[in-house]
């Protein structure tokens, strides 16, 4: 397996605060990797660095063989990195279908004049984009929700819609930021199966931030553990869960393999 994403000694400072400290990470192609750590450890900051929302203070982020730090988020997205957000950021006033279509807009094959005058290419292309979007919604069991306003869906379905939207980008790498947050045990069980399916059906690589240890330990092949901005441990779940440093960092929280 070749590495798809590589972080080399990446650091991020906010003013005097060092949020991420010399982090080295490798995620191979088709991998299903996890990133865990206590609250405030810097997990989401790492996602923000990978997706270009922040620029690293030091270090290099290499994706698919080229350096991506300093690029705009949208061009990183076009290179094949999609993400979801910890605190759900759907386009709430738009329908579920429109949410998905927006992720497909970079692949539209008509120009502004075709759109304004509805020239021949327009209808064909819109139909194609809608079919693709419906296909993704179908795979996640959201097809009958296509015309609902995204903001009106129940919480669990909003999370699913966010995943669907990220998948619509046809990413090589998908970053999931606490997808099980706020879900009940049955829902997170389903989510675990879904994450496994995503890798199979979309042939993509997954990097997962998760607080629910059961989810991480259940699906990830390899786990990075972050505490106070630095990596303190890494390895397969069964190794990480027995690492005394990890147990100390999670003091008080139960770690189950």
């Amino acid at each position: 397996m070749s590495e798809l994403l590589q972080l080399k000694a990446v650091s991020k400072n906010f003013g005097g605060l060092r949020a991420v400290n010399h982090v080295d990470m490798v995620v191979p192609e088709k991998g299903l990797y996890g990133l865990i750590g206590p609250n405030g450890a810097g997990k989401t900051t790492i996602f923000n660095l990978i997706t270009g929302i922040y620029e690293p203070t030091e270090g290099e982020i290499i994706f698919d063989g080229s350096l991506i730090n300093g690029l705009q988020p949208h061009s990183i997205a076009k290179r094949g990195i999609a993400r979801t957000f910890q605190n759900i950021r759907l386009f709430k006033e738009l329908t579920v279908l429109e949410n998905i279509l927006i992720a497909r807009q970079a692949y539209k094959k008509y120009n502004i004049f075709t759109a304004m005058f509805r020239l021949p290419g327009y209808f064909k292309e819109e139909k194609r984009m809608k079919e693709e979007a419906m296909e993704i919604l179908g795979l996640l069991g959201l097809a009958d929700k296509a015309d609902y306003k995204a903001g009106a869906l129940p919480y669990g379905e909003q999370r699913l819609t966010e995943i669907a939207r990220a998948l619509a980008l046809r990413p090589k790498l998908i970053l999931l930021d606490e997808p099980a947050a706020g879900m009940n045990p049955a829902e997170s069980e389903n989510l675990m199966n879904l994450i496994k399916r995503i890798r199979e059906e979309f042939i993509t690589t997954v990097l997962l931030i998760e607080h629910d240890m059961k989810v991480v330990m259940g699906v990830c092949e390899y786990i990075y553990v972050l505490d106070y901005g630095s990596l303190i441990s890494q390895g397969p779940p069964e190794v990480v869960s027995k690492d005394p440093k990890v147990i100390e960092a999670y003091l008080g929280e139960q770690v189950n393999a």
């Binding site: 386009f91 738009l94 279509l101 927006i102 807009q105 539209k108």
Partner: peptide, 28 residues
């Protein structure tokens, strides 16, 4: 027609959430 095309949807995504739009590949 403009607002009902991929262009219009991209504009609306900026209104709804600029950062999410960027992360979905919309050059805001």
């Amino acid at each position: 027609n403009f607002t009902r095309s991929a262009y219009g949807r991209a504009l609306q995504s900026i209104r709804e959430d600029e950062i999410a739009a960027e992360c979905m590949g919309v050059p805001t």
